[in-house]
Simulated assay, not measured.
Amino acid sequence: MKVFVSSVVGGFEQYRAAARKAITLLGHTPVMCEDFGARPYSSQHACMTEIEQADVVVLILGANFGYETATGESVTQQEFRRAKTTGKPILAFLETVEMEERQKAFSWEVSDYLDGLFRLTFSDQYELSDGIVQGLNQLSVSRKAISEQEFVQRLQQKDGNGRRGGYDHEARLEVAFLPQPETLGTLRAAHAQHDPFFLKLCQAGLGSIKSGYKDFNSADQTGIVTPEVKWRHHESGLCWLSISLANASTSRGIMDSYYLSPSRVRGGADAAFGLLCEGKSGWFQISLTGVDHKLFAEPPASSSSSISLPFRSEQKLEERSLLIPATPAAYRHWLDEVMFRFERKMSM
Rank of each mutant, 00 (worst) to 15 (best):
S306T: 15
S218P: 01
V57T: 12
I23S: 03
D124P: 03
V58Q: 04
R172F: 00
L206D: 07
R341F: 03
A272D: 08
A145G: 10
A248G: 03
Y113T: 08
N217C: 06
A330S: 08
C33H: 08
Y213L: 04
S261R: 05
S218H: 07
T121I: 02
H233P: 00
R264I: 12
G72F: 11
L59P: 02
L245R: 02
G166A: 07
L155Q: 14
G207A: 14
G185N: 14
F80W: 15
Q285N: 05
M99R: 15
L201E: 06
A272R: 03
L91V: 12
H191F: 14
H169N: 14
F197M: 14
P227F: 09
A269C: 13
S6L: 07
G237I: 06
A145N: 10
L136W: 13
T29Y: 05
H234N: 13
Y15G: 01
D55V: 02
E182K: 11
E337S: 13
I90A: 11
A92I: 10
A330H: 03
D112S: 04
S302E: 07
Q44P: 01
H293R: 13
L25N: 08
K280Y: 04
K280F: 05
E101C: 01
L317K: 03
R264S: 13
L120A: 10
H194Q: 13
G62L: 09
F151C: 04
I146V: 15
S347W: 04
S251Q: 07
G162S: 08
E52L: 10
C47G: 06
D168C: 07
D55I: 01
P328N: 06
C47F: 13
L178W: 14
L309P: 01
I243Q: 02
D130Q: 10
V133W: 04
G166Y: 06
Q193E: 15
M346I: 05
I60R: 03
S140W: 09
D195Q: 14
R332E: 14
S306V: 13
M1D: 09
F284A: 02
E343F: 02
K210V: 12
T222K: 04
S236Y: 12
A189T: 15
S211N: 08
